[in-house]
Amino acid sequence: MKNLIEIRWHGRGGQGAKTAALLLADVAFSTGMYVQGFPEYGPERMGAPITAYNRLSAKAIRNHSNIYEPDYVVVVDETLLDTVHVTDGLKEDGAIIINTSRSAKELLPRLRGYKGRVCTIDARRISLETLGKYFPNSPMLAAIVKVSSIMDEDIFLEEMRKSYAHKFASKPEVIEGNMKALSLALQEVQ
């Protein structure tokens, strides 16, 4: 991997973009990386646009600024494409990953001239199929791991199983659904 990978998450309050950034930091940590996962707080309202960030590095991280030129952008809510400049500063050798049922080609006109790789994942469908409810963050997490190749997929799944076992200790019935969501997203992101 590169020395430093910077990721910016765009979501809406209540969708779990912040949690997804913290989970990514968690799982990257467990594979031995130096990590940062942090949210940018505005007025906290359900549905308001929110931003969260990750730095993942082989070396200790000292920079505490927000991220303006990310390697990857993850868009948890497609409607943000029309209201937030999600591709600002995004590196052209990086990628944007969007939660959508549309194709990359269809979305391109809404990406303000971004020339890099555009990846899509239907996290809503995957989530409804595997969990019966709309929690996009597990599929989005798998999608960014796949697209960025920051870690081996098997190790990722193994570490996520441990992480869910801890997180959902009081409701273990949702672990399998989440694991399925991850596996499906790894296959389906394109």
Partner: peptide, 9 residues
């Protein structure tokens, strides 16, 4: 927030 809410090693 910068450190209080940021997960780090």
């Amino acid at each position: 927030f910068i450190t209080s809410h940021a997960v780090e090693n």
